[in-house]
Design a protein around this nucleic acid. Structure first.
Length: 253
DNA sequence: TTTATTTGACCCAT
DNA sequence: ATGGGTCAAATAAA
């Protein structure tokens, strides 16, 4: 297990290092913020209304989704990220063994929060010692405020196949061995310095973190946690995507 | 009754 | 034409 932890940590660091090389091409690409008015448009359409207004909206949205920056997490526990999500779709994807699930922020309606994510299992669950791994891709930013003083991370009941934490508390300790499998990638590294605060962990900072970790004798997840001070998987931390969807932000403990 | 999930259809980008 | 993202009616769960 120890070796496995080491191996996975090394892999994560290697990936982050690769991304660090790409980080030099940080350029500005302000993603349009698509307004989700589709439901109403659909209603109008289905009631025989003029459908011309539908096209720009949908186009705008789809384009924004495809062109938008994203943050990708690879994790065995895709549903514990500090936010509440509502599943709105599932699709079988070509050349994938498992369907992809689509989630939007639970507070989309009330707070017009535009954050979405997709979850897809990419590793066959080979046994009890080999937890299924999921690729989680986050789009957009959370503009919603977390409801209540919910210190526990949001627990999202989703796929029945979810095997995470088997009914245990929705909280992982940093020493949880599963956490050693986490890696973080991003499709675009653009840092808006005006958006940053002291508590922000941007992609670049994550990459720096990886570099620092590489120069340190890090043998356990506990040490990684200690070195970094936090992790993208810290459930006591609230995470968000920055205003332009470029960075993974930490906005609270 | 309310809220969340499932799932087939629809639509857009490639 | 096809793949993938989203909608929304039907269904399930609380």
């Amino acid at each position: 297990m120890f070796e496995s932890i080491l191996d996975c940590s090394a892999k994560a660091i290697a990936e982050l290092k690769l991304l660090r090389l790409d980080s030099s091409k940080c350029d500005d690409a302000p993603p349009p913020t698509g307004v989700d008015d589709k439901r109403r448009v659909r209603k109008i359409l289905s009631s025989g209304g003029n459908g011309d207004s539908a096209k720009p909206n949908r186009q705008q949205r789809k384009r924004s989704r495809l062109a938008s920056d994203s943050v990708t997490l690879e994790t065995p526990v895709p549903h514990y990220d500090g936010h509440q999500w509502r599943k709105y779709g599932q699709k079988l994807i070509n050349n994938a063994n498992h369907p992809r699930s689509y989630y939007k922020c639970t507070y989309k309606q009330e707070q017009d929060c535009g954050a979405t994510k997709t979850v897809q299992q990419y590793q066959q669950d080979g046994g009890t010692d080999d937890p299924a791994m999921y690729t989680v891709v986050y789009f957009g930013q959370h503009t919603c405020k977390p409801a209540g003083n919910n210190t526990d991370a949001a627990v999202v009941k989703t796929e029945s196949t979810s095997r995470s934490s088997g009914g245990g508390a929705g909280k992982l300790s940093p020493s949880d061995s599963q956490c050693s499998n986490i890696s973080v990638t991003c499709t675009s590294v653009v840092v808006d310095h005006h958006q940053r605060t002291a508590s922000i962990a941007s992609n670049c900072e994550l990459l720096d973190m990886a570099a620092d970790l590489e120069n340190t004798e890090v043998n356990t997840y506990d040490q990684i946690y200690e070195e970094a001070g936090f992790s993208p998987f810290d459930l006591d931390t609230d995470w968000a995507i920055d205003a332009h969807g470029h960075d993974l932000l930490k906005y609270g403990w």
